[in-house]
Design a protein around this nucleic acid. Sequence first.
DNA 1: GACTATCATGTCACCAAGTGACAGATGACG
DNA 2: CGTCATCTGTCACTTGGTGACATGATAGTC
Lengths: 197, 197
Amino acid sequence: MKEGLRERTRRAVRAELAQVAIDLFARQGFDETTVEDIARAAGMTKRSFFRYFPTKEDVVFDGIDLTGENVVADIAARPADERPWECLHHVLQAWQEEIHASEQALATIRLIEATPALAGRLHQRRTEWRRRVSDALQHRPGTDLDPYTADLLTNAATAVLDAVSSQWARSDGNANRPALLDQGFNQIHVDPNPQQE
Amino acid sequence: MKEGLRERTRRAVRAELAQVAIDLFARQGFDETTVEDIARAAGMTKRSFFRYFPTKEDVVFDGIDLTGENVVADIAARPADERPWECLHHVLQAWQEEIHASEQALATIRLIEATPALAGRLHQRRTEWRRRVSDALQHRPGTDLDPYTADLLTNAATAVLDAVSSQWARSDGNANRPALLDQGFNQIHVDPNPQQE
DNA sequence: GACTATCATGTCACCAAGTGACAGATGACG
DNA sequence: CGTCATCTGTCACTTGGTGACATGATAGTC
């Protein structure tokens, strides 16, 4: 399987590039670091950098699952009789606990929130993610949600996520993210049935 | 008042630039339109364009209040005994009805949602807006919210806003935005008091 | 009406993020 | 060994955005 081998080395180069880049960003800031800098530090050309990552921003999102790739699958795996909001709560809780346990992930979050360009890119990725989550929620066995309500649920979940991040930033990174998430999900309730009137 | 006069002509130039730019964007797309194009079409230089708008994206947000500038003031003006979620509902409902009545505003929304770069800039502006809204909500007379709950409320409100936009896009712009907003606010409930346990 | 400070604009030079085209090195495989 | 695919460097180019400087119009003052 030569395809596999090529893919493996390609992944290795990406990882190396990501490592080098995040180091530089942490040390001298995102805007102050040029793609040329990153590439040279990793022993290649600017042009080659762009053969591994489409933009300067994307290098930050490599390796760490900050956009919950597997969340979609997890939703489908939940029991069919679970209410949608509780389903989201459970799945995101598990995901957030993973993140919270990784010092590297937390450092990356800090970097992203301190850098407008990166925050923008995260939002862009989250937008695609939300579409997939909303779909998964809607087509879950045993439930019958209209698309608007599915979006409402999904967006409310990211509302909690964002509030957690803000509070976490306010506490200088000392707050317990999973606990905050839990509290947030308990304070918000989403009616899965549109008002009949 | 010469200051006032200068400000008035400056505003006029900005409006002209915005008009020309949006026309070009609608006709040939955002990415396919260069700043040079806009500037030339408005009878000036690229350099001068950037003396009126900090970025190419910002020209789109001129004139139309897509980030609810006055919403903050409106929140403070609501009766003190109103529950925070109902306060947000009322204020955003009024604002959304203004938007919905303006064909120009709706066209701009369409353009923004179809253009990732513009969607990103909107998100950036919304982030600042949310901070101000959350503050206003928290320091409203008669209420006593912790910052986390205030964020939860504000973010939940933008969750509704985003769901409205998605549904509106799904309906090809035929859906009634204020009605959707109303429904969304009724389907979500936010407990203004953290769980005591 | 001449004098002067102010402000808008154009010009030029520059930097950084990307992208396309081409040429050479490398390495797998028959 | 030869061949083919892939990776890489080099070069040239476009576009967004900025700093520095010169100039021309304008408004206010004597």
